[in-house]
Computed example of a mutant assay.
Amino acid sequence: MEKAKVGIIGGSGLDDPDILQNRQEKYVDTPFGKPSDALVIGTIGSVECVLLARHGRRHDIHPSKINFRANIHALKQEGCTHVIVTTACGSLKEDIHPGDVVLLDQFIDRTTKRIQTFYDGEENSLKGVCHIPMHTPFCPETRKILKQSLDHLGFRYHPTGTMVTIEGPRFSSRSESKMFRMWGGDVINMTTVPEVVLAKEAGLCYAAIALATDYDCWRDDEEAVTVEAVLKTFKQNADRGMKVLLDVIPRIGEQDWTAVVKEYRTTAKESVMPSK
């Protein structure tokens, strides 16, 4: 039986180490450099977990400067089978209210500066070329368990959602925001890509808890998103995100992940064309 070991990547305001019991810090390095901060290792219930603050614990790493490869590689290196992430986001839909939870199942990539593969041909990269399939970016089996948790907790949530990831750190223009709505985007952030892609290359079960903080800037009758407006909903969202993690991770630990983990690892391995 393949037991779950869960990596947790906490987004802005969603990286409180107090959710872990028996915790200790571990500073690591990877072939791709150092991750955003120390790994905080501990347990939730009987499940081994590794917590990492995506932007660093001082929130001093802006989205384009996050070392996504080091973050994912560090969690893989620690033996994680899963990566559950939290992310603050703007809503692109009228019925996704600030405070709502969205369980992502798709993304649209609007980033321009980020390395999206461990196989980029550089000296310390993995060898070969990886053509990882992204038809189903987020782990459906993990998402099912997240739905169970959200039903149990009684939180308002949306069972599917397409995340538009922009480069940042600026917010969108109003025209961009309206265009993303026309494309079918449900929510918008600055960090899902390339994190989800790298997790897939690493053979990890990746799922995201997106927490809406605002309506971005597509509404003509409302002021545009600002840092001040976003911060107003952060505490409520942080409390909700922590409760979801505390409920869902023991549920994940009850499952036999042998077949799922094997499938993800096989897909990752078979997607690499070896160098001649």
Results as ranks from 00 to 15, higher is better:
residue 65 K to P: 02
residue 243 K to V: 06
residue 119 Y to C: 11
residue 113 K to I: 01
residue 220 D to S: 09
residue 213 T to D: 04
residue 240 R to H: 12
residue 99 G to W: 03
residue 69 R to H: 14
residue 55 H to G: 13
residue 54 R to I: 01
residue 79 G to P: 06
residue 11 G to P: 13
residue 33 G to K: 09
residue 37 D to L: 06
residue 205 C to P: 01
residue 73 H to A: 10
residue 262 K to L: 10
residue 223 E to Y: 09
residue 270 E to S: 14
residue 218 W to Q: 05
residue 155 F to K: 03
residue 210 A to S: 09
residue 57 R to S: 10
residue 84 I to H: 00
residue 273 M to W: 13
residue 29 D to S: 15
residue 11 G to F: 12
residue 181 R to T: 02
residue 134 M to D: 11
residue 243 K to T: 09
residue 17 P to K: 15
residue 259 A to C: 01
residue 132 I to F: 05
residue 109 D to H: 12
residue 129 V to C: 11
residue 41 I to Q: 05
residue 196 V to D: 08
residue 128 G to M: 10
residue 199 A to D: 04
residue 275 S to E: 07
residue 175 S to N: 06
residue 103 L to D: 14
residue 126 L to G: 01
residue 116 Q to S: 13
residue 263 E to V: 01
residue 264 Y to I: 01
residue 10 G to P: 04
residue 126 L to K: 08
residue 225 V to S: 02
residue 227 V to R: 03
residue 128 G to V: 12
residue 192 T to S: 14
residue 259 A to R: 05
residue 22 N to C: 09
residue 202 A to L: 08
residue 176 E to C: 09
residue 152 H to A: 11
residue 55 H to V: 07
residue 24 Q to R: 13
residue 149 S to Y: 00
residue 87 T to W: 01
residue 194 P to A: 08
residue 193 V to S: 10
residue 69 R to E: 14
residue 52 L to Q: 02
residue 29 D to T: 15
residue 117 T to C: 10
residue 247 D to W: 00
residue 235 K to E: 15
residue 147 K to R: 14
residue 61 I to R: 10
residue 103 L to K: 10
residue 131 H to W: 04
residue 119 Y to S: 04
residue 160 T to Y: 08
residue 262 K to F: 06
residue 74 A to W: 02
residue 184 G to D: 02
residue 146 L to R: 02
residue 78 E to N: 07
residue 4 A to L: 05
residue 220 D to R: 00
residue 77 Q to L: 05
residue 94 E to A: 15
residue 55 H to S: 08
residue 241 G to E: 09
residue 104 L to G: 06
residue 262 K to S: 12
residue 137 P to L: 11
residue 96 I to H: 11
residue 144 K to Q: 15
residue 273 M to A: 14
residue 109 D to M: 14
residue 259 A to K: 12
residue 147 K to Y: 11
residue 52 L to C: 06
residue 230 V to C: 08
residue 132 I to L: 11
residue 231 L to G: 00
residue 75 L to V: 13
residue 127 K to I: 03
residue 157 Y to R: 06
residue 58 R to S: 14
residue 70 A to G: 06
residue 35 P to K: 00
residue 249 I to W: 00
residue 236 Q to R: 08
residue 100 D to T: 08
residue 181 R to S: 01
residue 96 I to Q: 12
residue 4 A to Q: 03
residue 145 I to G: 05
residue 271 S to I: 13
residue 34 K to P: 01
